[in-house]
Nucleic acid binder design. Structure first.
Lengths: 224, 224
DNA sequence: CTTGGCAATAATATCTGATATTTTTATTTT
DNA sequence: AAAATAAAAATATCAGATATTATTGCCAAG
């Protein structure tokens, strides 16, 4: 979701990943190399490097000898991802609440505040900024667990967050006021260092999102 | 650890990954492209694709503009990995014990039997077969959790197992009889579907391995 | 001697273009 | 309509070229 280093490779990587997450590249779509070369204006070699990376992260599939395709979606997959996110994020949250110092807390307050501001705007119906809004959501969730003291854990979580996000972006509707309140509750439990409560709220938060997405998928409300 | 598809790319991938895990490529070592090209007899493009994949899995680092190097080791990193393995493998184990059917059980019995046979040989001092032995260890641990019903979870676990394994291969000594007994206990708890006991044994098993490796690292007993 | 700066060298990132092999698609035959 | 086959498209892999960036070694200044 973040990453700097403006080399051609890393830029292409970010762009394609973003296009997969936000649905510009549809689940299951064939990723024809020549076509991508034209779209992303980059060479075959760079493209293949990028796609290999995305394949190993699970955003792309690479069946041998037949190129690449956007990882398909499925209800099963979504459920797995949601449950793993609960597992990892709760664990990280617990560690983070134990270790978080003043800086951590300050950063969290800031992240929550920014998210909240954005959420108010979103409630006003301005859906054009979905992407920015989700960046604040990410930054809030990251801020919560940032003091967990495990780079490996944060890395795994980051990928899971993105996979979960893709499913959220696939459905048209958002959860509105409910999610806003959940963020606020989690935030307060975190500041109070109430790990059990925070974890339970987080679990609920993710599972509510899951249900919402599943329901929308059932009704076929997908972004085509 | 497994994988078929004998394309040049996937073969090189497996070989380099294996060389990192088993220490032929030392932690922190610079991966010069020309040198690798000669060793693995493959083209630059294929090599870079491979290294990109390994980088995204965390076996290789790729600082921008300066090529690739084998992921360095550290005590911190080892601890993180061990703890994550406990978290994920215990979770998977619990699910697996709930869902495992007769086929799962049969496969587990077989995997444990094979591991046990190999372990008896190893106790006899034949360290030359470390790699084969570890494959049986892997197959046993995988058999335990295979019925967890989550491809995503199994994929994450597989990578963690390999990372943990690398640290184990770095120290010279093995844990011998103790680990054999632990495997047996875990196996029996699993067959009895005693999830709590199985999880606690597994946790202990991994943490014992961690302590053993940490102690050896402290004493500097590293494979150079 | 050590440190800072600069030239020479090595290595990387990226691109273009070529070829063998494999898939996919279209066409023909039974 | 199914099977067999030919034609077209796409992929995997390789080789080689270039601009850019890192590294190394050398020399002067303190």
């Amino acid at each position: 979701m973040s990453e700097t280093a403006s080399t051609v490779g890393s830029t292409t990587y970010q762009r394609i990943k973003r296009d997969i997450i936000f649905g510009a590249l549809k689940p299951g779509a064939k990723l024809k190399l020549d076509a991508l070369k034209a779209v992303y204006k980059t060479s075959l070699s760079t493209l293949r490097e990028t796609l290999n990376r995305l394949a190993s992260e699970g955003f792309v599939e690479a069946p041998p000898q037949r190129g690449f395709l956007v990882k398909p979606i499925s209800v099963i997959d979504l459920k797995e991802i949601a449950h793993l996110r609960v597992l990892l994020e709760c664990h990280a949250l617990e560690l983070s609440l134990e270790n978080g110092d003043t800086d951590w807390e300050g950063n969290l307050v800031s992240a929550h505040h920014k998210l909240n501001l954005m959420e108010q705007k979103m409630l006003g119906g301005d859906a054009s900024k979905k992407e920015i809004w989700k960046r604040y959501d990410w930054e809030f969730h990251l801020a919560m667990i940032q003091a967990c003291n495990s780079k490996n854990l944060l890395a795994l979580h980051s990928t899971l967050y993105d996979k979960y996000l893709r499913y959220q972006m696939i459905v048209l509707t958002n959860r509105g006021e409910a999610a806003v309140q959940e963020h606020r509750d989690m935030f307060e439990a975190a500041i109070a260092r109430d790990a059990e409560k925070a974890k339970s709220l987080l679990t609920q938060h993710i599972e509510n999102g899951l249900e919402h997405t599943l329901a929308a998928m059932d009704r076929g409300e997908l972004v085509v």
